[in-house]
Structures are given as structure tokens and as C-alpha cells.
């Protein structure tokens, strides 16, 4: 069983990452990652919705007729999104304004409905919750990486406006890495998101290929020894 959980974790965080590999939920991923704060806000919101929807979908999986499962999944997801949206409206109002339409749009995030369909509707509650956690973390990690990259290049800061998400104490989190005279607007605008996303995916593939090459070298050596003894 622990092997299973380990598999789920690597799937969600790396080898089947919703952002980098499945390329799901690109619309919010590209749209709101202009600062780390926005990325973190959306990442947490998506994580919460994913967790809730996977839990509920898994709990009711034996009573849902196959023919109408998609509308039911959407209903479940929509109710969680509404809850998260109201919570953000109440507690992190500035961030709520900054994210705007992209909070309600979580409903249509294919990463979430994809997990409900592919995993939660076929598995018990505990693995489903764990899968949601890992997928959510993987998605949030990509959001954060992209957000950090764009904020750093665009305005030379990190965690600018973090108080909107975490409360007044978080103003201390703001780091000015580079003092830029001019904002590098491209990184903050949508083209920067596409280019940055492309670079992230390329980076992940490069790491995977390097790993694969190392493994191939290793297996090749053992094989040579085996044939040596047999012949």
C-alpha cells in the first residue's frame, strides 16, 4: 500500500504533473502567474477544490450512474469552487480582486475534472484524497515556479503584495532581488507566460532525458557482464 502512495506522489508531483505533463488547466496557469502571490493564491484555491471534489466524488462513486457522471462531477466541483470563492472574498479580498474571473473559472479546470474522472471515481476515499493532494501540490509548484520566474524577470521582486494573501505580517516577505529601473513588461504580459511555460517543460524533459541516459548506461554495463559469463 505504501508503494501505491509513493507511486501516487511521484505521479502527481513529477511524472504526470498536471501543469507540465498533462498540460491541463493552462488558462489560469498562464493568466495569473505574473506574481508569486497570485500564483500561490490560485494554487491553494485549486488544491482545496481538488481535495474536496476528489473526496466527495470518491465517496459517492457507487451511487452515481455512469451516464450522468460528468454533470454530477461538475456540480460537486462547482459547489466547492463557490465555497472557496466566498472564503477568498471574505478573508483575502485584495487577492480575490486580483484573481478576478479565474477563481470561478476553476470549475472548468480540466485538471480537476480529469482527476475526478480518472482516479476518484474508481478508487476509495483515502487514496483519492492523497492523489488530490499530490496533484494539487504539483500544480501549485508549477504555478509558483512560473510566478517566481515572471515576477523576478518582470519587476525584480519576489512575494510582492503577499500581504493580500497571508495578512499584514507577510509584507516582510517581499524581497527585492534586482532593483530594475524599467519593468520588463514582456515577462508580466501573457507572452512571457507562454515562453516561461515552454522553458519549464523543456527543463523537465531535459532532466528526464538525462536520467534515462544514465539508467541506460547502467543497464548496458550489467548486460555486458551477463553475456560475458553466459558465453
Amino acid at each position: 500500500m505504501s508503494q501505491n502512495y509513493k507511486e501516487l506522489a511521484t505521479q502527481g508531483l513529477w511524472s504526470n504533473n498536471p501543469g507540465l505533463v498533462q498540460l491541463l488547466g493552462l488558462c489560469p496557469l498562464l493568466a495569473v502567474t505574473n506574481t508569486v502571490t497570485n500564483a500561490l493564491g490560485l494554487g491553494i484555491a485549486t488544491l482545496l477544490v481538488l481535495l474536496g471534489s476528489n473526496l466527495v466524488v470518491s465517496a459517492i462513486r457507487n451511487w452515481v450512474p455512469r451516464e450522468i457522471r460528468i454533470p454530477i462531477f461538475v456540480l460537486v466541483i462547482a459547489s466547492f469552487v463557490t465555497a472557496v470563492q466566498l472564503l477568498m472574498n471574505a478573508f483575502t479580498y485584495e487577492l480575490y480582486l486580483a484573481l478576478g474571473i479565474f477563481i470561478p473559472l476553476i470549475v472548468t479546470n480540466c485538471a480537476i475534472i480529469g482527476r475526478a474522472e480518472a482516479f476518484a471515481s474508481k478508487n476509495p476515499m483515502l487514496p483519492s484524497a492523497f492523489d488530490a493532494l499530490m496533484m494539487g501540490l504539483g500544480f501549485a509548484a508549477v504555478l509558483l515556479a512560473l510566478g517566481a520566474m515572471r515576477e523576478l524577470l518582470g519587476q525584480g521582486t519576489l512575494f510582492d503584495g503577499a500581504d493580500a494573501l497571508l495578512g499584514p505580517w507577510a509584507q516582510a516577505l517581499r524581497v527585492e532581488v534586482l532593483a530594475l529601473d524599467h519593468y520588463f513588461l514582456l515577462a508580466l504580459l501573457p507572452p512571457g507566460a507562454f515562453i516561461g511555460m515552454g522553458l519549464l517543460i523543456a527543463g523537465k524533459n531535459a532532466i528526464d532525458q538525462r536520467k534515462q541516459r544514465k539508467q541506460q548506461v547502467k543497464t548496458a554495463i550489467t548486460r555486458a557482464r551477463v553475456t560475458g559469463t553466459i558465453v
Binding site: 524599467h182 520588463f184 513588461l185 514582456l186 515577462a187 504580459l189 507572452p191
Partner: peptide, 10 residues
């Protein structure tokens, strides 16, 4: 185009 979008003033 990159420069024009990123640094319109300059």
C-alpha cells in the same frame, strides 16, 4: 517585437 512590447518607451 519583444523589445517593442517589453520596453515601449525606449
Amino acid at each position: 517585437v519583444l523589445l517593442l512590447i517589453a520596453f515601449p518607451v525606449q
